[in-house]
Amino acid sequence: MLYWLLKWVFLGPLLRVVFRPRVEGLANVPATGPVILASNHLSFSDSIFMPLIMRRKVTFVAKAEYFTGKGIKGWFMKAFFAGTGTIPVDRSGGRAARAALDTQLRVLRAGNIAGIYPEGTRSPDGRLYRGKTGVARLALESGAPVVPIAMLNTDDIQPTGKLMWKIRRVRINVGEPLEFSRYAGMAGDRYVERAITDQIMYRIMELSGREYVDVYAAKLKTAPTAAAPSETPAAPAAPPAPEITA
């Protein structure tokens, strides 16, 4: 109930008037059934604007600490994440990735939409980084199609490290669904999962027009010289999924 109140009565109408989202390809999101929305990640505001423009509820997972803060700020964050359909997950242990995956699988098996950022973290400089294979595992284990999404200018609306937002028109591109059911039963095969992930990231690159860097964004954040612009590899050709033979 809180989700729909925020989206259609309180926060949603205000954001639509102020930021006037312009979306290309929204009809590519299936009207029913399980769907994985895989997006690049430029800003905290991605998790606000992307669900806002969808006709169906989108569920993300977030670390449990967002739901346990103290004081007014803690209450506001808890209310916001709960109201936007975000599910808390304990990400402190070694099974954190599996816990997040299992949570999203439950969402998909209920016939709903799961949102995921394959890069695993926000881009530090606006470029598109190597995707983690959790998105492929999620697709293989659920059988759900993957809809690639490009957030185009949310890093301009809310630059990294800034609390204040700039008033700009939000722009989002939604691609056609990618379907991987022909690889059913191959979850856990790291070569298949890497190839599928690369296909998804290539499509997001096409939709976004952003430069691609074949390095994990988290690695760049801990080692800033890991992928300097002068060393950035050229964007790969569209990687085909591996052929499966009997």
Results as ranks from 00 to 15, higher is better:
Gly143Pro: 05
Ala150Gln: 08
Glu119Met: 10
Arg169Trp: 10
Gln199Asn: 14
Met186Gly: 02
Leu220Arg: 00
Glu193Gln: 01
Gln199Lys: 12
Gly131Tyr: 01
Tyr129Lys: 05
Tyr216Pro: 02
Ala150Leu: 01
Arg130Asp: 01
Gln199Gly: 14
Lys166Cys: 09
Asp125Leu: 10
Tyr191Thr: 15
Ile157Arg: 02
Ala226Tyr: 13
Tyr216Arg: 12
Ile200Met: 01
Arg137Cys: 10
Ile149Thr: 03
Gly161Lys: 12
Val215Trp: 04
Asp156Trp: 13
Leu128Pro: 08
Lys132Asp: 01
Leu220Thr: 01
Arg210Ile: 02
Lys132Val: 00
Thr121Gly: 05
Gly143Leu: 00
Val135Gln: 06
Thr225Leu: 08
Thr225Trp: 14
Ala195Asp: 14
Asp214Cys: 03
Ala184Arg: 10
Tyr212Glu: 01
Tyr216Leu: 13
Thr197Ala: 05
Gly188Pro: 00
Lys166Ser: 14
Glu206Leu: 15
Ala150Asp: 02
Lys166Trp: 10
Tyr183Leu: 02
Pro124Trp: 08
Arg137Gln: 15
Leu140Asp: 07
Glu141Lys: 11
Glu211Gly: 09
Thr225Phe: 09
Val147Met: 09
Thr160Cys: 09
Thr222Met: 12
Met186Gln: 11
Leu138Pro: 04
Pro224His: 05
Thr160Glu: 14
Arg127Tyr: 11
Phe180Ile: 10
Glu193Phe: 09
Tyr216Asp: 03
Gln158Tyr: 07
Lys162Tyr: 06
Pro145Met: 00
Arg137Asn: 11
Ser123Pro: 05
Glu141Arg: 11
Tyr183Asn: 12
Arg190Gly: 11
Ala195Ile: 07
Ile157Thr: 08
Pro177Ala: 02
